[in-house]
Each structure stands twice: as structure tokens, then as C-alpha cells.
Design a protein around this nucleic acid. Structure first.
Length: 639
RNA sequence: GGCGGCGUAGCUCAGCUGGCUAGAGCAUACGGUUCAUACCCGUAGGGUCAGGGGUUCAAAUCCCUUCGCCGCCA
């Protein structure tokens, strides 16, 4: 029986479309999955979407949609992206799937029945936009520490999960399984966290409906982690009749996650599993973030890089290669389109693509495309072989540890050695002497063989390119197993090569319009008027005034004429804001009037003061400054 | 505030348990080559290894300290 391998990505939250950072996790998982398949593992690769929660409920409502219809739409976009990126998952679990709900019900009930879930009262501060609860201590000046908005105090009956009970067992497990949490720094953080003591976890809500109902009491909905994390076993059929997959693949070999959700995967999830008397996953790997020069990518910053645009421009292989090569294992990495193009030009076009191109061209030119037999192996040939075999070994080790960056770097040592080998053996000189024909043939054979090995090894990362190489070098790359890269001499002499398309055409960086993500606004220095003394300011008499009447000034597009109440007097004021307000909308509003401004005649009407407002520089919009509290008119507004 | 990490060439980073003139890739300059996608190969410049102190025959590597940056603390 084949060895099994179960790898997962997080299930992504469909409140918005995915960005290139999400693509990183999924590409890593897909590459690992393909690598294991090439190593003859029976692989199960799971991804999906986490579709419940108040935020979805609200966003859907804002869009006048039912939540399910709303998420259907976004999830279709997820799947489309994965298809474009050549992500070959075995299953896509949605938390709205009936099968998922069944499993969640089952596991919730099981844990409840044994007494690890109990009812109590939850009280906390909640920030709806961020969908996060905070403790009093976490708030910054009483507001949400993430977004700075107001938080709501929420007090409700909830079900709680007895996490505290499993604290010691979890700690012991982590210490006895040193590879469970990777990388090391995350592991240390988690140990630290647990040692501070675990609180019980609130696992239900009554404030929204968009979720899986708590099976034992109506009106309660299962809250986030109990629902979301369970996807890893609901997709396998746990708690239902069809649990063959569960028996075959659980425990998972790797839960691949971003570093921001390591805690949930290494504390809450294992404890849920312990309570359900299930085995724990073998490894949780928290990879780093893809940063932009302008910081972390996030929707609120508006600096999100859309992977679909990039795929269209450069192709899935290139994006995949960049992500895997550029982000160091377990660390953050930087994205910029310039870096992407540099990687592309240097590694793919110049080094690998060109190596294939020049080698195949020489076989065509000197041997009519028939791959010659290698004879009389010399030291330099041996060296090329050794570099290839050594790289195979090291690359395998790196990839086993999810270190794709170093894995690919190792593979490229063969590419570099190949280019150097051409330089040292100078086939074009050998071609001039008929008696060197055998030597020339050997050199070209060795080069093709080196290319073959490289091409086998880049297949998990770049699944498309192998098929294109196969058109030129007819070796069965498409079905190749990984260990074929660990053997020298597998390509047969006599193989007929043919000219193919340029694998990676160079991109001229200078003539390219790079669409950098909308970086944060460059803070243009404000140009202020000349500094004034307080005395200058104090001369202004700003007063609250109530608008009694408003009408358009005849024959003037811009002007409105107001009657305003200022204490006991009634004044007439003309203001150039007709473009922005209908007269009737302003009646009754309390505005700020510059009350001691010298009256001026406008269109024959005497205007006795000015109403304060703020307007955009290009005059595209304007808002009158208004007072919301019910202050009497005539009130001094500033002093 | 508590715990942890980082600071090495213009840029991104390797340098494990201390030991030859501190490395790689990119970028720059110069040279070589023409099979190839103006590509490839070679050479060179450039670092008081954040600052200070200590241990040692010997420290980027261990210890202390200062400064700066980052992560975790539901």
C-alpha cells in the first residue's frame, strides 16, 4: 500500500477577493502535494472557504444579497483563481456544505456530552468591522486597537469550551513532538502563550444567525474556530457514514497556515481533537507574509496585488516560481513587480530557458537533432554529474522541510554548472574538428541530461513548463517521478530533439509599465498660509446659526440665499454652494457663521456673514460644517 | 510592561555547536566568448560583521550593555 500524505491550506474567508498573499500559501501546498505525488505518495490536498460569521452576514446585506448567494459568488472567484494558478486540490470544502455541518454537529455534541462544553455568560468588547473581540486591556483609548473604531459591549449567553482542562496535555505534546510547530520561533511563542494559562473558549453566539446552529439549543450559532477548524476532518467524512478518507488520511501531515493563525491551529485545534479523542496533526507550519514596500498587504490599505492580473501577464508558472523562490522559508518576503521580473529574467529566461535553447540548438545544428551517445567520460563530465546528483539530494531535503526557496536555489546550481560547462567545453570549437565529433556528442548528451534532471525537479513548482520542454526534448516529464532526477543517464541516446518555442522570453524591464500596487498616498506636504497670532484668530466671531429659509438666487447657478437665526436676529447670507445642496435640505440645520464679517453685496443681495464649509481642492464636493447638538443659535462656537 | 528574535557588501540574505585572507545571488565596472533569449563565462571594487565592554591563544559566532527594528502576550 502507498504511503499517504494529507496537506491542507487554511480555508479562506470570502469577505473579499483573494490577493497574492493567499496565493503564496496555496502555491506552497500545491507544490508540496505535487512533490509528494511524484514521490509515489497517495496525496490528499484540501483547500476551501470559511463562509460563516457576522461580517459575511452584514456584507451580504449591504449588497442586498442572501449570505449564501453572496459567498457563492466570491467562492466561485476563489476556484477560478486556483484553476488559473494550476492548483490541483483534491477537495474544496465549504463550511456551508451540508457534509461540513453534519461533522460540526457531531463533534460539538460529542464534546458537549462528555462535559467539555458548558453554558455561561460572555461579556466582551466587540469590533464588528474587524469581527474580533477584545478585552478591556487591549483597547486603545476605548477603541478597537486594529481599526480605531468604536467597539460594542456585548453580553450574552454562550457555550464555552474547556480549553483549560487540556493545557498540560497540549504542552506535553508540543514538547514531545518538536516538529509539531514550525518554524521554531512560532513554537516558542506558543509554548509561552500556553504557559500563561489557557482560558476557556467561547464557541457560540446569539448575536447573528449566519452560522451553523448549536445542536443542543436554538438561537445559538457555533462561533468561528469550532466551525472553521473542523473543516480539516469534515472533508474526510469524520462523524458521518462515509469516513473511509478519514481513516486513510488522518492525522494530517501538514496544516500549512500563515503565521497570523498559527495560534488557532496549534492550540484550539489540537485541544478540540484531544477532546474528541482524535489524533493530532503531525505538523503545523506557519509561513511568513508577502510584504510590499508599503507594508503588509491589506484590503483596508488598498495596496492589494491581484494575482489574476499577474497570471494573465506572466503565466502561472512564473508567479509560482517567484513566490516559492523569493520568500525565505518561514520568513516574510517582499513583493514588487520589479523583483518578479528580475527573477524571471535572471533565473528563468537567462539561465534555465537559455540553457535549454542553446543546448537544443547545438544538437540540432551538429547532430540533426539526434541525441548522440556519451563516450569516454572525463573529469569535467563527472563534475557536472556530481553537481546534479548533489543538488538532487539537497533539494529533496529542503523541499521535505517546505523550504522551496533553498530547494530551487539548489536546483539552479545545476543550471549554472551547465552554462559554465558549455563555456569550458566550447562545443562550437569541438564542432570544427571532425575528430572531436565523439567528444562533442558526449558534451551535448551531458547537457541534455543535466537539463532533464532540472526539468524533472522543477515540475512540482512549475507544472506547465515541463510539457513545453517535452516538445523539444521528448522525455516523459509529464509523468516523471521525482527519483528520476536522482539518476544520471536516463535519457536515451538517439532521442530526436526538435526546435520549440522560447520557454521564457526576456522581458525588457525598462520599456515596461509596471503596475505597482496603489501605494499609500505619498504624504504631500501641506502648503499653509502664513502663520498667524492667536490675536488674529480671536478676531473671528464664529457663531452657531440656524438656517430658517433657503432658496436659489435667480440667474445664479452657484448661489443660495439663506435666512439664518442668530440669537434674536435674523440675517441674510448668500453662499456659493448651490451645486452641492438643494435648498430644502439645509433648512433647520445648525451651521457655523463667521458673524463679524463685513457685509458684502452679492448679486444685489447683502450677505451678512459666511457659512463655514469644507471643500475638496478641485471643488468636486463640499460639505457645510454643521452642529449636531441642539445648541441655541448665537452660541459662540470657538473661543 | 513580560517573553523571544533580528541588526553581516548598494539590495535580498548564508555564515551550525568560536579557528585559515567574512560568503552567495542581484546590481556596478572591466575582460572573454559567439552555441544561445544583447545571453553565457571570468575578474574586480565594495563590509571597523549596529555601537561599547568582556571571556579566550583565537569571536560575526559566547557573555554583559547601549541603540534601532520586528514578533507573541486570546
Amino acid at each position: 500500500m502507498k504511503k499517504t500524505f494529507y496537506i491542507t491550506t487554511p480555508i479562506y474567508y470570502p469577505s473579499a477577493n483573494l490577493h497574492i498573499g493567499h496565493a503564496l500559501t496555496t502555491v506552497m501546498a500545491d507544490t508540496m502535494s505535487r512533490y509528494k505525488k511524484m514521490n509515489d505518495y497517495d496525496v490528499f490536498f484540501l483547500t476551501g472557504s470559511d463562509e460563516h460569521g457576522q461580517k459575511i452576514e452584514r456584507t451580504a446585506k449591504e449588497n442586498n444579497m442572501e449570505p449564501k448567494a453572496y459567498v457563492d459568488n466570491i467562492v466561485a472567484g476563489f476556484k477560478d483563481l486556483w484553476e488559473n494558478l494550476d492548483i490541483e486540490y483534491d477537495d474544496f470544502i465549504r463550511t456551508t456544505d451540508e457534509r461540513h455541518k453534519e461533522t460540526v454537529h457531531y463533534i460539538f455534541k460529542k464534546i458537549y456530552d462528555q462535559g467539555d462544553i458548558y453554558k455561561s455568560v460572555y461579556e466582551g468588547k466587540y469590533c464588528t468591522p474587524c469581527e474580533t473581540f477584545f478585552t478591556e486591556r487591549q483597547l486603545v483609548e476605548g477603541k478597537c486597537p486594529d481599526c480605531g473604531r468604536d467597539v460594542e459591549t456585548i453580553k450574552e449567553e454562550s457555550y464555552f469550551f474547556k480549553m483549560s482542562k487540556y493545557e498540560g496535555r497540549l504542552l506535553k505534546y508540543i514538547e514531545e513532538n518538536p516538529d509539531f510547530i514550525q518554524p521554531q520561533t512560532r513554537k516558542n511563542e506558543m509554548i509561552n502563550f500556553i504557559k500563561q494559562g489557557l482560558e476557556d473558549l467561547c464557541v457560540s453566539r446569539t448575536t447573528f444567525k449566519w452560522g451553523i446552529p448549536v445542536p443542543i439549543e436554538e438561537g445559538h450559532v457555533i462561533y468561528v474556530w469550532f466551525d472553521a477548524l473542523t473543516n480539516y476532518i469534515s472533508a474526510l467524512g469524520y462523524g458521518r457514514d462515509d469516513k473511509d478518507l478519514f481513516e486513510k488520511f488522518w492525522p494530517a501531515d501538514i496544516h500549512l497556515v500563515g503565521k497570523d493563525i498559527v495560534r488557532f491551529h496549534t492550540i484550539i485545534w489540537p485541544i478540540i481533537l484531544m477532546a474528541a479523542e482524535l489524533e493530532l496533526p503531525k505538523k503545523v507550519y506557519g509561513h511568513g507574509w508577502l510584504l510590499l514596500d508599503s507594508g503588509k498587504m491589506s484590503k483596508s490599505k488598498g495596496n492589494v496585488v491581484d494575482p489574476k492580473v499577474l497570471i494573465q501577464k506572466y503565466g502561472a508558472d512564473v508567479i509560482r516560481y517567484f513566490l516559492l523562490r523569493e520568500i525565505p522559508a518561514g520568513q516574510d518576503g517582499f513583493y514588487s513587480e520589479e523583483a518578479l521580473i528580475t527573477r524571471y529574467n535572471v533565473d528563468l529566461a537567462n539561465d534555465y530557458g537559455n540553457l535549454v535553447s542553446r543546448t537544443v540548438a547545438m544538437v540540432l545544428k551538429y547532430f540533426d537533432g539526434i541525441l548522440p551517445e556519451p563516450v569516454n567520460i572525463q573529469d569535467i563530465d563527472k563534475d557536472l554529474q556530481n553537481v546534479a546528483l548533489e543538488a538532487y539530494k539537497k533539494a529533496s531535503e529542503h523541499i521535505d522541510k517546505l523550504d522551496f526557496s533553498n530547494g530551487l536555489a539548489e536546483i539552479w546550481k545545476i543550471v549554472n554548472r551547465g552554462n559554465k560547462y558549455i563555456d569550458e567545453t566550447a562545443p562550437w570549437i569541438l564542432a570544427k574538428n571532425p575528430e572531436d565529433k565523439e567528444r562533442l556528442g558526449t558534451v551535448l548528451y551531458n547537457l541534455i541530461e543535466a537539463i532533464r534532471i532540472v526539468t524533472v525537479m522543477i515540475k512540482p513548482a512549475m507544472p506547465n513548463i515541463t510539457a513545453k520542454v517535452q516538445e523539444q526534448i521528448p522525455y516523459n516529464f509529464v509523468d516523471a517521478q521525482w527519483n528520476e532526477a536522482g539518476v544520471w543517464g536516463k535519457i536515451e541516446a538517439g532521442t530526436k530533439l526538435s526546435k520549440g518555442d522560447t520557454l521564457f522570453p526576456r522581458i525588457d524591464l525598462s520599456s515596461l509599465e509596471i503596475e505597482e500596487p496603489a501605494a499609500e498616498e505619498k504624504p504631500e506636504p501641506l502648503v499653509l498660509k502664513e502663520e498667524i497670532e492667536y490675536g488674529d484668530f480671536a478676531k473671528l466671531d464664529l457663531r452657531v446659526a440656524k438656517i430658517l429659509k433657503a432658496e436659489k438666487v435667480e440667474k445664479a447657478d452657484k448661489l443660495l440665499k439663506f435666512e439664518v437665526e442668530l440669537g434674536n436676529e435674523i440675517r441674510t447670507v448668500v453662499s456659493g454652494i448651490a451645486k452641492y445642496y438643494k435648498p430644502e435640505d439645509l433648512v433647520g440645520k445648525k451651521v457655523i457663521l463667521v458673524a463679524n464679517l463685513k457685509p458684502a453685496k452679492i448679486r444685489g443681495i447683502e450677505s451678512q456673514g459666511m457659512i463655514l464649509s469644507a471643500s475638496l481642492e478641485d471643488d468636486s464636493d463640499l460639505e457645510v460644517v454643521t452642529i449636531n447638538k441642539d445648541f441655541p443659535s448665537g452660541t459662540t462656537s470657538v473661543n
